[in-house]
Structure formats: structure tokens, C-alpha cells
Simulated assay, not measured.
Amino acid sequence: MITWTPPQPLTAYHTAFRQKGVYIIGGRYNLNLSVTPGFGDNDYLGRNWPDNFKPYYVGISESLSSGVRGRLSRHSRQRGNMKISQRIRKNEPLFFIAAYGNDLAPYEALFLCLKTDVQFSDNIRSEMERSSKREYEKVRANMTQFERNYYDNLDHDGRDG
């Protein structure tokens, strides 16, 4: 189960680690209440999901140098997602949570399966396609040249030909 960091304002992106991981940028469901750390497990959202946290955008960083901090920095400087940039220009209070580690990219695709009008609405490009492409590239990198040639010469329906 994925474990989330406590929520931080997006302006505090420098507190995020320079490690691989998945992050979520969001706001408040109830504007009169704070976003507070959650405790316990949620079968769908993971461990320590924050209270009063409305997820707008999920993303990943697979960079070993800038990591999640680098991605959040780009969003904070309005160089990331267009809809998050619009929220920043409107002075909307934004928060982030993160989970760190290798092989968390599938969580991005998993969360986007939960996309609705009220959660992950700011993810506008097909992260599912990106996730599939990343997995394909990982599998292909572990193939021998013979296996790549064989695979590349298969018909679309999987038969030799």
C-alpha cells in the first residue's frame, strides 16, 4: 500500500525529496477547513490520505537527479500542467502530497482510473498511454536482440507471419 507524506503548500515544494516518486497536487473540499494529515489506511487512496484534500492532478518523477521536488518546482513556477498554472494565477491555495520509491509509476495510472469531474480533473493528457509506453520500454530493454526482432515481426493479432 502506498504511504503519503503529510500535505504541504505547493509553494513549499522545496521540502519534497529529490527522489523518484508519485505526487498529487490538490486543494480543499471545504474552503473553511484546513487540509490536515490523515491517519490510517484507505483501500483506494493509500495510507495517510489527508483530510479535506481534493486531488486535482497526479504526476510522477522517475528522475534520479531532480525527482519529485523538480516536478513540483516546475508546477509551482507555472511550467507544468496548464490547469494547475491557471489555479496559481487565481491565487487558489494548492497543496501536495508525495510517496517516494522506485516503480511507483503504475500508481499514477491507477489513480487516473478514479478520474472524475471532482478528482484528478486537471490531468488533461493521456497518462494511461504514457504509463503503457513506459512499461513497454522497460520490457523491451530486457529483451535480447533476437527477442526484439521476433516480436517486431509478429502480426498484430500475435501470430507469426
Results as ranks from 00 to 15, higher is better:
Met1Asn: 07
Ile2Ser: 01
Ile2Lys: 01
Thr3Ile: 15
Trp4Val: 06
Pro6Val: 11
Gln8Ala: 09
Pro9Glu: 10
Leu10Glu: 10
Tyr13Pro: 12
Thr15Phe: 09
Thr15Pro: 00
Thr15Gln: 15
Ala16Val: 07
Phe17Pro: 00
Arg18Lys: 14
Tyr23Arg: 01
Tyr23Asp: 03
Ile25Ala: 09
Ile25Tyr: 05
Gly27Cys: 14
Arg28Asn: 02
Tyr29Gln: 10
Asn30Asp: 15
Asn32Cys: 05
Leu33Ile: 01
Ser34Trp: 00
Ser34Gln: 11
Pro37Tyr: 04
Gly38Tyr: 03
Gly38Cys: 08
Tyr44Phe: 08
Tyr44Arg: 12
Leu45Arg: 08
Asn48Asp: 08
Trp49Ile: 00
Pro50Lys: 06
Pro55Gly: 09
Tyr57Met: 05
Tyr57Asp: 03
Val58Ala: 04
Gly59Glu: 11
Ser61Cys: 09
Ser63Glu: 03
Leu64Gln: 12
Leu64Lys: 15
Arg71Lys: 11
Ser73Gln: 15
Arg74Asp: 15
His75Arg: 05
Gly80Cys: 09
Gly80Ala: 06
Gly80Ser: 08
Gly80Lys: 04
Asn81Glu: 15
Ser85Glu: 06
Gln86His: 13
Arg89Thr: 11
Asn91Arg: 15
Glu92Asn: 08
Pro93Thr: 06
Leu94Val: 11
Phe96Asp: 07
Ile97Asp: 02
Ala98Asn: 02
Ala98Pro: 07
Ala99Pro: 06
Tyr100Lys: 04
Tyr100His: 07
Asn102Asp: 15
Asn102Met: 08
Tyr107Thr: 12
Glu108Gly: 01
Ala109Glu: 06
Ala109Tyr: 07
Phe111Pro: 04
Phe111Val: 05
Phe111Met: 10
Cys113Glu: 13
Lys115Ser: 00
Lys115Ile: 01
Thr116Asp: 01
Thr116Ile: 00
Asp117Val: 02
Val118Leu: 13
Val118Arg: 10
Gln119Ala: 04
Asn123Ile: 06
Ser126Trp: 12
Ser126Asn: 15
Ser131Val: 08
Ser131Ile: 02
Ser131His: 12
Lys133Trp: 11
Arg134Glu: 09
Asn142Val: 05
Thr144Val: 05
Gln145Ser: 10
Asn149Met: 13
Asn149Lys: 12
Tyr150Asn: 06
Asp152Gln: 14
Asn153Gly: 08
Leu154Thr: 07
His156Phe: 14
Gly158Thr: 09
